[in-house]
Simulated assay, not measured.
Amino acid sequence: MPWKLASFATLLAAITLAGCSTSGAEKDPVVADSGSSRCESKAAEFAIGKKASPELLEQARTRAGAQNARILKPNDMITLEYRSDRLNLNTDANLVITRVNCG
């Protein structure tokens, strides 16, 4: 009986580890795309002092060369991971852009 239990445990461990492995040919699309363009916040500084809007966000994202962009209002809950391909437009309570940065 202990032999069967040990064999079963070994088989279960092998199946579990095989499920965790990946082939070298597969790439994570997020990792592959994130290195293709880098955000340049200076190119989007024209937006400072303007009222935030979806059109302005897209225009600033395009000029900065960013893959993604977001508008951050005071007291917004945000993720803190750094992404070099993301543009952030920080606003005041009246949705006027006060700061532009990448990350």
Rank of each mutant, 00 (worst) to 15 (best):
N88W: 13
N94S: 10
S21Q: 14
A44P: 09
A43D: 15
T79L: 14
D28V: 04
A66N: 05
G103H: 01
T98Q: 14
C102H: 00
D85E: 12
L12Y: 08
L80S: 11
I97Y: 06
L57P: 12
R38Y: 03
G19L: 07
Y82F: 04
P29I: 08
E58R: 10
T98V: 15
P2C: 07
T98I: 15
L11I: 15
S53N: 09
R38C: 09
R99V: 07
L87H: 10
G103D: 00
R38H: 05
V30H: 03
K42Y: 03
G65V: 05
I15F: 01
A69M: 01
M77Y: 14
A44S: 10
N90S: 12
K4C: 08
M1E: 09
D92E: 03
L72S: 07
L80E: 13
A43Q: 15
S84Q: 04
V96Y: 09
A60P: 10
Y82C: 02
A13K: 02
D33L: 12
C102E: 00
L89P: 06
K27E: 08
A13M: 10
A47H: 13
V96C: 04
R38K: 08
L95Q: 08
A52G: 12
P29Y: 05
R61C: 05
T22V: 09
C102L: 00
S53Q: 09
R61F: 04
P29H: 08
L57S: 07
C20K: 04
K4T: 12
M1Y: 11
E45W: 00
L5M: 03
